[in-house]
Design a protein around this nucleic acid. Sequence first.
DNA 1: GCTTCTACCGTTTTT
DNA 2: CGGTAGAAGC
Length: 781
Amino acid sequence: MQRNYLDELNESQRAAVQCTEGPVMIVAGAGSGKTRVLTYRIAHLVKGGVDSFNILALTFTNKAARAMKERIARIVGPESRNLWMGTFHSVFARMLRAEADKLNYPSNFTIYDTDDSKSLIKAILKEQGIDDKVYKPSSVLARISQIKTLLISHKDYSRNEIYIEDDKLAGRPHFGTIFSLYCKRCFKAGAMDFDDLLFNTNILLRDFPEVLFKYQNKFKYILVDEYQDTNHSQYEIVKRLAARFQNICVVGDDAQSIYAFRGANIRNILNFEKDYPDMKTFKLEQNYRSTQTIVKAANGVIAKNKEQLKKVVWTDNEKGEQIKLLRALTDNEEGIQVAQEIFSIKMNRQAKNKEFAILYRTNAQSRPMEEALRRNSIPYKIYGGLSFYQRKEIKDMLAYFRLAVNPNDEESLARVINYPARGIGETTIGRIRVAASDNDIGIWTVLENLKDFSLDINAGIQNKLADFVTMIKSFGVMLTTHNAYDLGYHIAKTTGILKELYDDKTVEGLSRYENLEELLNGLKEFSVGEREAPIDLPGSFETQNSETTVSHLRTLDAYMQDIALLTTEDQKGEAENLDVVSLMTVHLAKGLEFPYVFVTGLEENLFPHQFSMDDRADMEEERRLFYVAITRAEKKVTLSFATSRYRWGKLVSSDPSRFLEEIDQQYLDYPKQPALTDSNHWDFDKVIQQKETKNKPKINPHPALKKNLISQQQAKYTNKSFDPSLLKDLQVGMNVQHERFGTGKVVSMEGVFPNNKATVFFDGVGQKQLLLKFARLEILR
DNA sequence: GCTTCTACCGTTTTT
DNA sequence: CGGTAGAAGC
C-alpha cells in the first residue's frame, strides 16, 4: 500500500485532491495528470474516512472506470469494491433496475442498442406506410435522441405547436407520430434505448422526491470525469443528485470537448461557476506528457477558438523534434509513407510497435493504412468499428438470451422468430403484427394466446409458433434454476444455432462459430465466478440492508443486465499487452497517449470534416479534435495528407487542411519537394494520368479456378468446406495482389502450404483482419 | 417461403 | 466500393 501518495503530486494537483468538500471544478489541460488527480482524490476521500459506498464516480467509458478502479484499489485496498464507478449509462441503468416499478417498467427491462432502435423505427415506418426515404431511420433516431436529451417527452412534443410547425416546414409532418409510437413501443416491449436510460433517470429523480432523497444521501460525493462532454440530460442528473450535499467535483478540459455532435454541451463546463457560485477552481496546466514543440504547436492551434476557459498549458519537458509533415499523391501512398516512417523510427530508435498510433478522422480511412502496414509486416490492431457484441451471430444468440429474460422484447423476437429457419415467414409475422397493433398489445401476448385470435395462419405454422413460445418460456423458467453457462449452452443447442454455425464451413461461418464459442466461454467464466459481470458495479443499490436470501447462482439475467452498453474495448482484457501499432479514430484516442502519433488525412473537407465547414461552432469542435489528436503524442507527431483520395470508388482531388496552416511554421517540418504553397501542387489530372498509365500487375487466374470464381451473393450461399488451418499457414509470407474481377475485388494470394503450392482467390476480401468474407480456396497439386 | 440477382444508395465522430 | 432492399425465380 502506498503511504505517501500525496507526495507524488505537484502543488496544484495536491490542492485539487485535498479540497474534498463543496463544489470543485478541475480544469485539466491535456497531459496534466488528470486521471491521477481523480484517482488520488477518491483514494484521499476513502482514506479520510468517507465510506466508499457513498462515492459516485462517473466516467466516459467503462474502460476508464475499470482502469481507475484498479489504481484506486492499489492505494486503498479492497474497500474500493464498493465504489460506484462507471459510465452514466451503466450506473443509472442499475439504478433504474432497482426503481423500475415506479416507472412501470420491469426491473429486467431490455436495453435497445442503436440497431434495435433503428429497426424498430423501420418497422413503425412500414406499418404506417411512411416513406423511409424521406424519414430515414438514422435521422429520425438522431432527432428522437436529440429531443430526449433535452428532456422533452413525446407527449410534450406532440402537444407543442412550435415543434409541429417546425416539422411541417421541414417536410416531416409525421415525425411527432413516429416519435410517439416509438416511445410507446419501447415501453410496451419493456425496453429502453440509450437516451431513455438518462431520460428516465431524470424522470425518476424529478417525480419521486423520496427516490431523489435516497440517492442524494447515498451519493454524498460525486465526481464527474470528462465533464466537457456531458449532455443536458446528464447535466441535470448530476445537478439533482448533488443538490443536497454539493460535494461535486467535475474534471474536464473545454479544449477537449469533442462530442457536441452527440449532444454534449460545452456550456456545462463553461457555466459551472454560475451553477455553484461558491465553487473552487483548480487548474492543472503543467503538461507531463509531450515535448515543448507539441505543447506549443497545439496551444497555437487551439488559440484560434473563441469559446474557451482561460488557461495556459506549459511543460518542462525537452524541446523535442519538429512536427513532421508527409505528403502523398493518394491515400494509398499516404499509407505507404506512414508505414515507412514507422519502420524507420522503429529501426533508428529501437521503438516498439505499441509506441505508435495512427489516428484518423473517419473509420473508412483505416484501409490504406492497414494495407501498407501489412505489406511492411508491421502488426497492428484496429480499435472501434464493429464491436464483438454487434456481430450478427452474437446478436442472434443474445436475442434469445434477451427473450428468455424479457419475452416482450420485440426487436429480439423479430430477430430470431425465424432464425434458425423454422418456416415462419414474413406473411405470418405481418399478420401477427397487425393483430398486435389492432388490439394494442404486444406481439408476444398475441403469440401466447394465439388461439384467441382467429388469424389466417394455417395449423402447421400455428404449431410452429406454439413450439417457439413454449421454448422461450422454458428458457425463462430455467433462469432461476440454471447458471448462466448451462442455460446459455442449452439455448444455443435447443435453438439449433450451435449446429447451424457448426455446419457452416465457410471462412466466415467458422469465425462465427468461434465467436459463439467465445461468448459461451465468457458465460462459463462468469458462471463459475472467475469473471464479474461485463460491467462491474457493486451488486445493487440495496446491498447494505437486504441480506442475501438470494441464491449464489450466477444467472443469465445477471450476466445480461447491461450488455448493450458494452463496446469493443470492454471485451476481455486483451490487446494492452500486445506489441502492435494502434489504429483508431481521433475520438477513440481521447484519454490515451503514445510516444509516436500519426495524424492522417489532413485534408480540407476530411479533417476538418466537410459537414462541419459551414458552422463556426462545428469548426471549433474540429479544431479541438485536432488538438486532442496531436496532444496524444509524447515524443513526436507526424501529420500526413494526400492530394487525392479514393472515395466511393472514385479518385477525387483534395486540398491540404487549414489546420496545417494554423501550426506555427517553426514547429513544422515541411516535406522537401515541392513546397506546399506551389500552385502546381495538386495537379490532379497528372495524378489521374499516372494512375492510369501505371502498369498494374495482371493476375491470370488458373483456368481451372476461373470457372469457379463466383459472385459475392453466390459465395454467401455456398457452403464450401475446407481446412481453415491452411489459411493461417498461408498468411505467412504471402504475396497479395489485387485485381478487379467482375463485381467486387478479387485477390490472389500465393503462398506455400506445408505440402502444396496454393493459389487462393477471394472475392471481396474483408481487409480488416485478413479474415475473409466469401472465400473460395483451391489447392493446386 | 427460400434463394439468387440486380439496382441503387450512401458515405462523421459513439455511450 | 460495399451493403442492402426488393424483384424475380425456384
